[in-house]
Simulated assay, not measured.
Amino acid sequence: MIAVLFAILTAFSNGSASVLQRRAALEVPHTDAVGMSLIGHLLRQKVWLAGIGLVIVAAVCQAVALATGPISVVQPIFVIELPATLLLAGFMMRAPLPRPVWLGVAAVTLGLALGMASAAPGGGSSAVHGAAWVPALILTGLVETLLIAGGLATRGNVRAALLATAAACAYALTAALMKDAMARLDGGGGAGALFTSWQLYATAAAGVGALFLLQNALQAGTLVAVQPCLTLGDALISVLYGVTLFGEDLRTGWWVLPELLALGLIAAGCVELARSPLASGNATAPARARRVD
């Protein structure tokens, strides 16, 4: 399936971009680590520019994936980004990967495979019909407000988890808006319809908001508190958007049991990977906490 292929390409492109950008950041003198001098230093590094190029490639691949497949298929595949980033980091930085990292990679991969096979997501439309966006945006806004308010009222890892969940919700919304925007290309209006659609600009706004929330979550607590909420939250909320807005189908009944097992495996794998020095940036090879989408 084209959507699956491009979703995997998105995950690996984002992972590669993370490694290249972090590698470039390690070359920045400590005195230039804050302020505009940091940007100036990075702009002179081909490795960092290559990372930015891969971010653009990832964005294009995600758009193609969402335009050709259900959001409930595309978004959950992004859970492999963290494992991919750590594997690429270990290879490019020549850093040995300890056994816990391999176990985490195996758990996330097995969980994704089990979850996709059990849920068998599919069907649905390529665009949101009617005024379905109105209640979806209102409900999303309320949930985001509660999560952010809860995060601001707490500290440490609790704040990090709440803000990471808010970021996950924003990333899932970004994907849903992007998918609806891309549907304008197939609606007969071509590029003109795409660039005049409110969904395209809402996608950009939601993406910026998601990135802002993620950075605050990472600043508030540990990666172990952030990563599972971010990874699982993005996947689950994206599936919810797919079912409610695009009419996509999922298996239910007894299939819920292996689906829950899959979620447990992914969560356990993310926690194990987030504990790695490679993920926290304390080793020679780092990784990004998210695709950011």
Rank of each mutant, 00 (worst) to 15 (best):
L162G: 01
L240G: 07
L173E: 00
Q75A: 14
Y171N: 07
T154S: 15
G207W: 08
P286A: 14
D293P: 12
A289V: 14
L88E: 08
V224G: 00
A153I: 06
S280V: 10
E248P: 01
T145Y: 10
T252L: 11
T284I: 11
V134G: 01
I56V: 15
Q62L: 15
A153N: 06
V73M: 13
V226R: 10
A274V: 15
E259H: 01
S13W: 07
N14C: 11
I237D: 03
I77C: 04
A25Y: 08
G188W: 00
A283E: 12
T196R: 14
D249F: 03
L9F: 13
V243R: 11
I80A: 11
F195N: 04
L213T: 00
I71H: 06
L173M: 08
H129T: 06
L265Y: 04
L88F: 09
I148P: 04
P135Q: 09
A24F: 09
V34M: 12
E81H: 06
V101D: 05
G141T: 00
S276A: 15
Y171W: 06
P277A: 07
A107I: 01
V64I: 15
G264M: 08
L250N: 00
A225F: 07
M36E: 14
I8V: 15
V28W: 06
A131S: 10
V271M: 12
A262M: 05
K46F: 05
G69P: 04
G53N: 01
R44W: 03
S126I: 03
A202M: 12
L5E: 10
V243C: 05
S197F: 05
V256M: 13
V57K: 00
R44P: 00
D234W: 04
L177T: 09
V79S: 13
M182C: 05
Q45S: 12
L278Q: 13
Q75E: 14
I148A: 05
I77S: 02
P96Q: 05
A176Q: 01
A107E: 03
A283T: 11
R22I: 09
A205I: 12
L42P: 00
